[in-house]
Design a protein around this nucleic acid. Structure first.
Length: 326
DNA sequence: AAGACGAAAGTGGTTGA
DNA sequence: TCAACAACTTTCGTCTT
């Protein structure tokens, strides 16, 4: 406060740190004086701000290893670990940090501590639930090949639903599957409900119920699932080339513009569009094959693709004849 | 024989009274 | 809670390649 430096200190102790031009003399020579914790204009000597906090470490390191060794922080917070990876663990060895044996009194003390620590950590009902749920989440998402960020999101959702007491009376597995399904949809990487249901030991119906509950109670806004989001996965499973994918997306966009997509199962739409594109680009797959990966029936593929062909006016080439009637 | 087609009946979910 | 409804599924016989 009583600092003598920067005689021209004036009212502008601006909080914004992104000023590079000096408001006094207009020169661009504002510099950061880390040693003093000040920002000073080299041109006129005005102190723009002082008593700045140095956010860096207080130690110095001269090599990468040293940097590693001195760092006191660990891995980032992980929501998929039930205690976020933060809880302290009391070692099971009866030695102190120097490796000496503990005195008998100390030993029994540690024993007691350990016991209570374990009880409080894993055995409170919420934590026990979480521990189990996170294990299930890990199992399920690795089986489905769900990437980390989405798992973390699912874990966050699960925590929220525990807070809201949604899990009570429902199976942990069902709730976990529902959060995972929701997380995938939020991140625009939807998986078919059936696929998630198959991978977990929850039937489709239960899963759907939990999912809807989740939406209502946590009031999450989930973008309507877009058939386009499925295209790359399906195309990949059918080993179709990228031109086919592009054409499929194009078809879906045009269908959407024509209002063909409202109220229709996105899976069926994606399947039908892929079918059409695969024929157009001469990489034909059977309705059966496509229906299988999209988890709809051939009939649905057929109905959708008929509509698409009719409405988009794709009656060209080797498309089977189509009748004008309705 | 496999794939495509379409009719008819059945199913699960949504909506509105 | 129930009926009506739209979309989808199942099933099956026929046609096409």
């Amino acid at each position: 406060m009583d600092s003598p430096r920067g005689t021209k200190r004036s009212g502008q102790r601006t909080g914004q740190s992104d000023i590079t031009r000096c408001p006094e003399c207009g020169s661009r020579s504002v510099v950061e004086d880390v040693g003093r914790g000040e920002r000073v204009c080299r041109g006129c000597g005005l102190v723009l701000s002082d008593h700045r906090i140095d956010m860096g470490a207080e130690w110095r390191a001269f090599s990468a290893e040293e940097n590693e060794a001195r760092s006191r922080v660990g891995a980032p917070l992980r929501y998929t670990v039930h205690d976020k990876g933060l809880s302290t663990v009391i070692d099971w060895r009866d030695k102190d940090t120097a490796g000496r044996k503990l005195s008998p009194t100390r030993r029994s003390e540690i024993y007691r501590l350990r016991k209570w620590q374990i009880r409080s950590r894993v055995h409170s009902s919420v934590d026990r639930n979480l521990a189990q749920a996170m294990a299930e989440l890990e199992r399920l998402s690795s089986q489905l090949g769900i990437p980390k960020p989405i798992r973390e999101l699912a874990a966050v959702l699960y925590r929220k639903s525990i807070m809201k007491k949604l899990v009570r009376g429902r199976s942990i597995e069902a709730m976990v599957a529902a959060t995972l399904y929701a997380a995938c949809r939020i991140r625009q990487k939807p998986r078919p409900l059936d696929e998630v249901a198959d991978a977990s030991r929850v039937d489709r119906k239960k899963l759907g119920q939990c999912y809807r509950l989740l939406l209502r109670s946590l009031d999450i806004k989930i973008p309507l699932s877009d058939p386009i989001d499925y295209v790359s996965r399906f195309a990949c499973q059918l080993s179709l080339s990228s031109p086919v994918q592009l054409r499929t997306v194009e078809i879906l966009k045009r269908s959407r513009d024509l209002g063909l997509t409202i109220g229709r199962d996105p899976l069926g739409l994606a399947a039908a569009a892929i079918y059409v594109a695969s024929i157009m680009l001469d990489e034909r797959r059977t309705q059966r094959e496509i229906a299988e990966v999209a988890r709809v029936t051939e009939v649905t593929v057929r109905n959708r693709y008929k509509e698409i062909v009719r409405r988009l006016g794709i009656d060209s080439l080797d498309m089977p004849r189509e009748v004008g009637g309705m």
